[in-house]
Design a protein around this nucleic acid. Structure first.
Lengths: 270, 270
DNA sequence: ACCCGCGTCTCATATCTTGAGAAACTGATG
DNA sequence: CATCAGTTTCTCAAGATATGAGACGCGGGT
């Protein structure tokens, strides 16, 4: 919360308030009434009401039968356009499907946003315990395989910056809780070529990830395979890593990131 | 544009402008510079600048390397939370996958929003011509199978209302272009139990859809199978419709919409 | 070196939002 | 069916807040 206004703070009260309303509704599992919104945000009834009406006109919120408010579908549209511009998800999806078919575990596609990783896509195997991750949600870098995979291949200054902004929250006994320990882990990741999250975010959950590098060899995303520790065992890691590496290779080609040259892209887009 | 302010128009200029900015960026395929935004929206540079800075602080927009603006990832988060509350997509997805496996054509999941249908999910078969639909986008009811499927099972007054608000835009020679013709088509749909779009939105594209009814027998969504006309032939329609019906039955059970009674739901949620 | 377009920033002005409060509604409860 | 508590909806005067003219600085092109 304290990172909101570093310096040059441009302010438009109305916008801050409107987004506070959207945040509130996003956070809440259930639709909220006008009075609840107003009191939660310390807005006066009439102000909150006006905002909600305007937001509703724009389909940013909508009303349930009971007259309560929840997020509107225009946001869904915006959101999909937002990632579409990255163009990564669509390209990656078929490759991820293959990966899931091969490993029979859940695959994720993530990108780095600020100092956190955002889940862009998730593919689950036919039958498996449902993972709790929600597409669009984010996690810190220090406790995820995808975070570490991206971090490991970033230039030094970006790493420092991101570590500085990470709070190293502890989720399980194994969570890496200091910058130094994470540095060491990053080193390890870089050497072996893939990152591992060994029950560091959630007990019983093990993940492996590799970064996706663009034409300039910069990590733009990471893909991971996650599953219960008893299935994703230590012995299997190298084999799964192999599937992951094959998968990123495929995506790289699709995205036109291959260093092989630009001329032969046409062959793939047919 | 003229449908913006019917009556009780609550106004917050700042919000309208901010959303105009987001709309503009959403519409544009490429990131836009400050000057472009300002002139497109007839805002003065400094105003546009302030808005963009605030939007950026909220991650509603972000800057590319070149300093241009595009939609931000917070919207992606919001958008996913927005549909999550519907809870429909996650439940339906496995069923849709099976449907795609059976028919080997693209499947869509749509809901009705105002007088249009919004694409909530899309599953594509292993190898097929990529369909152009984007998740989150919307189409009018009169030229889509999903639109007609939902319409056909709505109460009379809602049908009238929706038809009144539809502009009956023509997309192909076969597009149903009058309310009367659509009425007849709806009648037909109701009798046969599934809706067909026979190249009415796009030449060479044929779709079949059935509605998903809730516990009160009200349509809340529709699922469709779409493919090139030469593969989705007239003879195949009844067979595909059968797969569709089985699919909605599965989803209905998952959602707890079965009229069989409420007691046995536990058996399915295990 | 010069110009032109673009992004950034400041500040006095008046426009637009604000919020108190009244009214209308909803639906419990006696 | 009257009453009441808790809502949502609406109005309007006051003044806080967003506005936009304009100045500055940067970088890329000619």
């Amino acid at each position: 919360m304290r990172d909101a206004a570093p310096q040059g703070t441009y302010k438009v009260q109305a916008l801050d308030r409107a987004f506070a309303v959207l945040d509130l509704l996003a956070e809440s599992e259930v639709p909220l009434g006008l009075a609840q919104v107003a009191s939660s945000l310390q807005l006066h009834k009439s102000t909150a009401h006006r905002f909600l009406m305007v937001l509703e006109r724009h389909h940013m919120v909508e009303r349930t039968n009971g007259g309560k408010f929840r997020l509107g579908l225009r946001l869904f549209d915006f959101g999909n356009r937002a990632i579409e511009q990255y163009d990564l998800r669509d390209r990656a999806q078929p490759h991820l499907r293959r990966l899931v078919a091969e490993t029979e575990e859940t695959a994720h596609l993530c990108i780095l946003e600020q100092a956190r990783v955002i889940y862009i896509d998730k593919i689950e195997p036919a039958r498996s315990v449902r993972m709790i991750t929600r597409i669009g949600s984010s996690n810190p870098v220090h406790c995820t395989s995808v975070g570490k995979a991206i971090l490991a291949f970033l230039p030094e200054e970006r790493i420092t910056d991101i570590l500085r902004r990470t709070r190293f929250e502890r989720f399980t006994p194994r969570t890496i809780a200091t910058p130094e320990a994470l540095r060491a882990e990053i080193e390890k990741t870089r050497r072996r070529g893939y990152a591992v999250d060994d029950e560091e975010l959630e007990e019983g959950l093990r993940c492996i990830a590799v970064p996706l590098l663009d034409a300039q060899r910069q990590p733009v995303a990471a893909i991971s395979v996650s599953g219960p520790s008893f299935r994703v065992t230590a012995q299997k890691l190298p084999s799964i890593a192999n599937h992951l590496l094959q998968c990123v290779r495929g995506i790289s080609i699709d995205m036109g990131y291959t260093s092989a040259g630009r001329g032969n892209r046409a062959a793939w887009t047919a």
